[in-house]
Amino acid sequence: MNMDAGTLARPEQETRELSYAEAIREAMDIALAADERVVLMGEDIGVYGGAFQVTGDLVHKYGTDRVIDTPISELGGAGVAVGAAMTGLRPIFEFQFSDFATLAMEQIVNQAAKVRYMLGGAVSVPVVMRMPAGSGTGAAAQHSQSLEAWFAHVPGLKVVQPSTPEDAKGLLLAALEDPDPVLIFEHKLLYKMKGEVPAGHYLTPIGKAAIRRKGTDLTIVATSIMVHKALEAAQTLAGEGIEAEVVDLRTIRPIDRETVLGSVRKTSRLLCVYEGVKTLGIGAEISAMVAESDAFDYLDAPIVRLGGAECPIPYNPDLERAAVPQVPDILQAARALAGERV
């Protein structure tokens, strides 16, 4: 499925089937083994193994000095990671839920994102923050949000959203090599998803989207778990004679303009699908980007956005499903868009 993933994996690298969580853990394992400066920080990431068992048993391999359980102090913990990154460490800070990053906004937005600029480039902040995000777990309004667009609004931060185990590992390793703060939004429902993952060290470039499926009739730009929903919809659409091109954005800051614009120039129709609240979300940025570019002159139908409903994530499972785009929504929107073919 990874047709144009743009990974830098060596061709001879063997692959194994790993879950998304296992792939992330493998990336952290490789980094901890290779670089003394790498430390993991977060709540209950030690013997507990992380709320979603992503760090697993790494604490037994690397000890509590490098796999550090923090107190429940999101602001302080994130700030410690920022300070450590400024002074030589390569911390990977895990928020137990990305919702809790709201407690640490000060350190992420005022400090991590701005220190380099405020100091005229005299220092950089190579911190990696992992953000378990998204709905679908019945955890309701304060444990299910998709806040990535908030952070993508801040110059100085980089924001990625891997959708596959391969990218989850490759993007984490790339984030560790990046001199600037990188926030990784991992969808909680993807943790158990399996996929082929190259062994050893490789990088998935930050700022590069992947075309997951080629098509000619419309472009679906999707992020995170929505990539899989878009692919499922695309398969159904193909049976109806509608060939959708599915672009997995992978990085939402900086956005891969060329891949998105190139696809829109080809298909002339754009559907944006993302789980974050629709208004002022990623889709607005993608739409504006297309509207402001020469790709505008290739549009043959209005742009359509499918995003989260304008409400907190509800508890009831039916309501919870209804609050984020689902495959039938994508099908309906895509058919309407493609139906404008004349």
């Binding site: 003394e36 430390v39 302080g76 700030g79 920022v82 300070g83 450590a84 030589g88 460490l89």
Partner: peptide
């Protein structure tokens, strides 16, 4: 704002043995 950052710098010093 500087308080957690200072703790981070101290964590670096301890980890890296500077």
């Amino acid at each position: 704002g500087g308080l957690p950052i200072a703790v981070g710098a101290a964590l670096s010093a301890k980890r890296l043995g500077t």
